[in-house]
Design a binder for these strands. Structure first.
Length: 315
DNA sequence: TGCGTCAATGGGATCC
DNA sequence: GGATCCCATTGACGCA
């Protein structure tokens, strides 16, 4: 590609255009600048590399360099060889143009160059750099809104986790109470015909169920931390397009949680219903009391994928 | 003097 | 094949 661009002004060729050959559009822009509202811009000509620049350009244009810079009393405006920032007026004009359209058609480029007393190439470069700056700012904005969204999600998730834990404890408590009632009723009905080999009561006393509840609470702690790490892990890879804020769209909220967790949630629901419908009749060993359902239990506090959208968007 | 900003360069990719 | 874009980088400049 570079052939055309180099013809415009890459390195020493630009120098030639501006300072020596006086034969192409760089010079044309220079002439045009005399009638522009930005006449006298220090940025019109780029005599790059005249002072301490690339060696190749220096050697090639050394005589011109000496001629141009021999007079140290030259004022800032007339001293070439340094990069000059665009004037405030030029930048304002370009900014307004950029607001209208951030892409630059050839006709518009030439017109802007005429109006500003710049080379068309300079206008194109300014737009190029301006787009890059805009993109950087956009990325920062996207990051901020994404982070805010994530923080909000995390906060919601944690509060829902607590609420779920509370509800589960409530269910256990109610189950125990119901078991006590059944026990009392069963004892009064069968007290006369109690057999030694009778299976143990389907409803264990509250004190015997405690380990399970304690274990589940312990598990919650692990669950919360693992869920957090899941959120973190699944966050960055989805951010594939820095320009767009697509991550904030509702449909993407499901990406925050791993799909496999929904299976575990189903297991936990099964286990919970088993506990309620088919109570354990035997006293297992202590380890068995605490751990039989832990694998399911630990991972069960995630929300099913289909529920995530609901709890998040209806919160 | 270090650092941030910005104009400009160079190379690769894409479009027409 | 020319024009333009994007991206990484360079170098000049201004400022604290």
């Amino acid at each position: 590609m570079s052939s055309s661009r180099k013809a415009y002004g890459g390195g020493s060729i630009l120098l030639q255009d501006n300072g020596l050959s006086c034969s192409n559009e760089a010079l044309e822009a220079l002439f045009l600048s005399n009638s522009s509202p930005f006449h006298g811009s220090r940025s019109i000509v780029n005599f790059e590399n005249i002072r301490g620049g690339k060696a190749q350009a220096m050697s090639f244009y050394q005589s011109h360099d000496q001629e141009e810079n021999g007079d140290e009393d030259l004022d800032e405006c007339s001293r070439p060889g340094k990069k000059r920032r665009l004037t405030v007026d030029q930048v304002q004009f370009l900014e307004k143009s950029f607001e209208v359209e951030n892409k630059l058609e050839p006709e518009r480029k030439v017109q802007l160059a005429k109006d500003l007393g710049l080379q068309p190439r300079q206008v194109a470069i300014w737009f190029q750099n301006r787009r890059a700056r805009w993109k950087t700012k956009q990325l920062e904005k996207d990051y901020d809104s994404l982070k805010a969204s994530y923080d909000s999600l995390k906060s919601n998730y944690e509060s829902l986790l607590k609420e779920k834990e509370k509800l589960k404890a409530e269910v256990l408590s109610l189950t125990d109470k119901q078991g006590d009632k059944d026990d009392a009723r069963g004892n009064s009905e069968t007290s006369d015909a109690l057999e030694p080999s009778q299976p143990e009561s389907p409803h264990k006393p509250v004190s015997e169920k405690k380990p399970s509840a304690v274990a589940s609470i312990i598990c919650k702690q692990e669950d919360l931390s693992s869920a957090n790490s899941n959120v973190y892990d699944s966050d960055s890879p989805h951010y594939t397009d820095g320009v767009h804020s697509s991550m904030l769209e509702p449909g993407d909220s499901s990406h925050v949680f791993e799909p496999e967790q929904s299976d575990l949630s189903q297991d936990e629901e099964d286990n919970l219903s088993k506990t309620l419908v088919h109570p354990v009749y035997t006293f297992p060993k202590l380890e068995e009391i605490v751990y039989p359902d832990q694998s399911a239990d630990c991972g069960s506090y995630e929300f099913p994928v289909e529920d995530q959208a609901l709890w998040f968007w209806s919160y």
